[in-house]
Amino acid sequence: MRQLTDTEIRTRIAKKVAELLPDGGFVNLGVGIPTQAVNYLSPAKKLYIQTENGMLGVGPAPKTEADIVPNLINASRQPITETPGCCYFDSATSFAMIRSGRMDATVIGAIQVSERGDLANWALPGKGVLGPGGAMDLVVGVKDVIVATQHVANNGKHKLVENCTVPITGLEVVNTLVTEFAVFKFINKEMILVEHSSDVTLDDIKAMTSAKYTVANDVKAWEVD
C-alpha cells in the first residue's frame, strides 16, 4: 500500500462519491471534496443541486470573470450559475426542505465518525470555528447522509473511532462513509464495510480504523491506479 498524495486522495473520494449520488436526486454538497464530486458524474446522471442559502437548481461555477452573475453564490460563498428551472427561496424555506426529508443526499466532511454513525464535523476546540452553519440541519433531515473524508488524519490519528471526542454535529446520523480506501454503510446502528479499494487488504483497513465494524458478505474491491 503506497502513500497517496493529497490530490490523489481527494480525487479518489470525489469519484466514489459521484458514483453513489442518486440519478435525478436532490442533493446538497458541502465545501471541498463534495463540490469536486460533481466533476466526476457520469454524463447520463442528472442531479438537482440545492444550496442552503436559498436556491434549487445550482449550475456550475462561471467559466470566466464575464460569466459571474451578481448576487449569486453558494453556501461556500463561491460564484455559481443558474440552470433552466432553477428557483430561489428564503432561508427558512430552504431548511424546511432539508429538515422534512425531501432531499435525497448530502455530502459533507468529517473530523470524526463513530461506529454508531455519530458525526463530528464542525468544531475542533480552539481552532476558530464559530458555529455549525447548516451541517446539523442537513445531517438530521437528509435521506442519505454521505460523509466524505480522508481515512486517517494527516497527523496519523484515526478518524473512524469508537466514540467521537470532539463536538458532535449529530448522533447516529451517518448513512454512508466514503474514504480513499473504503465505503461503509450504517444500518441499524451497525457499521458495515461494503467496498474497499484494490490497493488495500481487509487487514490494512482494520489497522487504520478504531471503530468496530463488520465486513459485508459480498464486500467488493474497486480498482484503483
Partner: peptide
Amino acid sequence: PQGTFAESIRAGGCGIGGFYTRVGVG
C-alpha cells in the same frame, strides 16, 4: 444551527411561541 436560526426568526415573525426540532440533539 442555521435552519434552527432561520426557523426561530420565522416563529418570531408569525406569532408562534417556539418549536421543537431534532436538529442539534446531543
